[in-house]
C-alpha cells in the first residue's frame, strides 16, 4: 500500500556485466571529478580578501555622538525593552554641570552593556531608539576566549570623538528612517 507520494520502490536487481566489472562506473566518476579539477574554486581567502557586505548588514553596534561629539543616548531604555534577546542593560545617570560637552541631554547612560553572546543582531534596538543613538554597523564582532569579554561596555560601543574615529552609518540611518516612516 502506498502511504505517501514520496515513497520509492527499491528494487535490488541483478547487476549487468558492465555494472559488475565497475570500470565504466569508475571511469564516469573519475570524469566527474576531473571536470571539477579544472573548475574555478569558490574560496574567499578571508583575512586577505573580504567579501562585500550588504549595505544593511547588521554587526557590531555603535553608540553615536552628534556633530559636537556629545553622546546621543539618553538612557531611556527603549532599546532594552525592544530587545528580544534581552541582551541590553543600562544604568542611567544625571548630567552634572560642566558635562554639557559630553552628553547631549540631561540624562545619559552611565553604564551601557550589550551581551554579544545573547544578541541576535535583529536590529530592533535601532528601530526603537528615538534619539538615533544606536546603530548596527558592518563591523564583525571579534572573537575571544572567555564569555566575560563578550559583554561590551561603553568603551567598546561608543564611537570616538575625533573625526577619523567616527563610524559612518548614513546608509543604515537612511534605511531605518525609511522603515520607521513607513505606514504600519
Amino acid at each position: 500500500m502506498q502511504l505517501t507520494q514520496r515513497s520509492k520502490n527499491v528494487v535490488k536487481k541483478e547487476m549487468t556485466f558492465l555494472e559488475r566489472i565497475y570500470l565504466p562506473a569508475i571511469a564516469k566518476g573519475m570524469w566527474t571529478t576531473l571536470k571539477h579539477f579544472f573548475r574555478k574554486s569558490n574560496t574567499v581567502s578571508y583575512p586577505k580578501e573580504q567579501r562585500e557586505f550588504a549595505p544593511v548588514y547588521r554587526g557590531w553596534h555603535v553608540l553615536k555622538r552628534d556633530e559636537q561629539g556629545r553622546e546621543n543616548c539618553t538612557a531611556c531604555g527603549l532599546c532594552a525593552v525592544a530587545c528580544p534577546a534581552e541582551a541590553i542593560t543600562m544604568e542611567a545617570a544625571e548630567r552634572e554641570r560642566g558635562e554639557e560637552h559630553l552628553y547631549r541631554e540631561e540624562k545619559y547612560a552611565a553604564v551601557y552593556e550589550i551581551n554579544m553572546l545573547r544578541c541576535i543582531f535583529c536590529g530592533l534596538c535601532e528601530e526603537a531608539c528615538p534619539k538615533e543613538a544606536i546603530f548596527l554597523t558592518d563591523r564583525i564582532v571579534p572573537s575571544d576566549y572567555a564569555r566575560q569579554y563578550f559583554v561590551f561596555g561603553k568603551d567598546m560601543l561608543v564611537e570616538g570623538v575625533e573625526p577619523d574615529k567616527r563610524v559612518d552609518v548614513t546608509v543604515r540611518q537612511k534605511h531605518i528612517t525609511e522603515k520607521n516612516t513607513q505606514p504600519a
Binding site: 571529478t33 571539477h36 579539477f37 573548475r39 574555478k40 574554486s41 569558490n42 574560496t43 581567502s45
Partner: peptide, 13 residues
C-alpha cells in the same frame, strides 16, 4: 593541493 582542486577549493596557499 590536488584534493583541493577536485573539491573546488584552493588548498595550502
Amino acid at each position: 593541493k590536488i584534493a583541493a582542486f577536485f573539491q573546488d577549493r584552493l588548498g595550502p596557499s
